[in-house]
Amino acid sequence: MKLRWTGLAVLLVLVAAAFILNMCLGLSRIDAKTVWQAFTAFDGSRDHLIVRSVRLPRALIALMVGCSLALAGAIMQALTRNPLAGPEIFGVNYGAALAAVVASFVLGFSSLQLFVWSAFAGTAVVGIAIIALISLGRAAITPSKLVLAGATINLLLAALTQGILILNQQSLDTMRYWLAGSLTGRELGLFLQVLPYMLAGLIGALLMSKQMDTLSLGDDTARSLGQRVMRTKLLMIVLVIVLTGSSVAIAGPIGFVGLAVPHIAKYFTGSDYRWILPYSAGLGALLLLLTDIGARFALPSQEVPVGVVTAFLGAPVLIYIAQRREGLK
């Protein structure tokens, strides 16, 4: 127990260091002293403006999006008892993408604010559709039904999104960077609009950690311990929708964070979700803050969308997890 608390404290220090580093490094390097003075003795200089208007929103978004996606992945793995589960399995990524494409192509939205909220609405609609689909009939919400429903809707939404983009070159040009997963060009005010949803999801996940720990033992065991399994599963689904939806709305569909980070957390904590969740939140934030720095220097002349970098790092992790799972059979 003491070792886990120590590890969590070290993780928080690393996240704080990565946050500061994220605001210092970029095409123009700014030392930590100047970053500090941008908040304590703002003078309107170029470096101070960059820190406050560009670097701070980007670092905050990386922090909260990484935290939210990692938590959503941990909840998905607890819900399905499947180590290969992640937020993408729900289809919320492409639900947000389809809603944003429709807003741009059909309704003619050009405002980033309307673009973000249409994406958020898409995740909510997809989440409700999945809940309705898996709740049909009298059978319980089983992991196989959950995975099948999410994967089916995900493929359908992906096909519809790509079809609309092919038909409309302007929408393709507008959305290409967002669909790759990007933290650039987001204003602080826009981030503050989705922050309450991220915080609500974070707090809700931590409060439900004990129920998730019990549910991971199996439905029958959870019922014998007095847990309302159906209600717990539905609440977990809602948390995944809120956490992933808010993240995708502000940063686009960034993959593999929700899949890989919970496995790293389990390496340090074991199978106790009361520790997996806070470790996942911290590790997700740390991963995306550092990945965002790497995305700035991946190419000499331009930035790479952070979603491309996470996919590059996450693909080997997915292969490793799949091979390890197959080897255990």
Rank of each mutant, 00 (worst) to 15 (best):
E303W: 02
K2T: 14
S53T: 14
A180T: 12
A322L: 04
V147Y: 06
N22H: 08
L107H: 02
R4N: 09
L165E: 05
S45F: 14
N22Y: 06
L287K: 06
G307D: 06
A251E: 04
V257S: 07
G294N: 06
L259K: 00
V15R: 05
L195E: 02
A222H: 00
N154L: 08
S246D: 06
L234I: 08
K2A: 15
I75S: 13
L49M: 13
Q162G: 13
Y273R: 01
F297K: 02
R231I: 05
Q162A: 13
I203L: 11
Q211P: 06
V125F: 09
V309K: 04
P253A: 05
V10W: 08
Q113S: 15
T152A: 13
L160V: 04
N168D: 12
T214I: 13
R4T: 13
L136D: 09
S216I: 08
L60H: 02
I241C: 06
I250F: 07
Q37R: 14
T310C: 03
G327V: 04
A85G: 09
P143I: 12
A119H: 00
G137H: 04
A99R: 02
V125A: 14
T244G: 00
G204M: 03
L146R: 13
G150T: 09
G245Q: 03
A9G: 13
P196W: 09
Q302V: 08
I89Y: 06
A281Y: 00
I293E: 07
A9E: 10
M212E: 03
V229T: 09
R55A: 01
C67R: 04
L277E: 01
V238Q: 03
F42K: 12
C67W: 01
L27Q: 15
F312G: 04
G44F: 13
L21N: 15
L299A: 10
E88S: 15
T184N: 14
F105M: 14
A140D: 15
A59W: 13
F39K: 10
I293P: 11
E187V: 09
A295K: 03
M23G: 07
A265W: 00
P87R: 00
P83D: 06
V309T: 05
I89C: 11
L11V: 08
V194L: 12
I321C: 05
A99C: 05
F120D: 01
H263G: 03
I89L: 12
L60Y: 10
R81P: 15
A129V: 12
G127K: 02
A129D: 07
I153C: 08
S171F: 14
F256R: 10
Q170V: 13
Q193M: 07
I89G: 06
T6L: 14
L188V: 02
Q77E: 15
Y273N: 02
A222Y: 00
A205I: 01
G201I: 06
S280K: 00
I134R: 03
A78F: 07
L112S: 11
L199N: 05
S171H: 10
F115C: 12
A151I: 11
A41Y: 09
I164R: 02
M212N: 04
D213T: 10
R228A: 10
S28G: 13
L112W: 08
T310L: 02
A132K: 08
L84P: 12
L215S: 08
P83F: 01
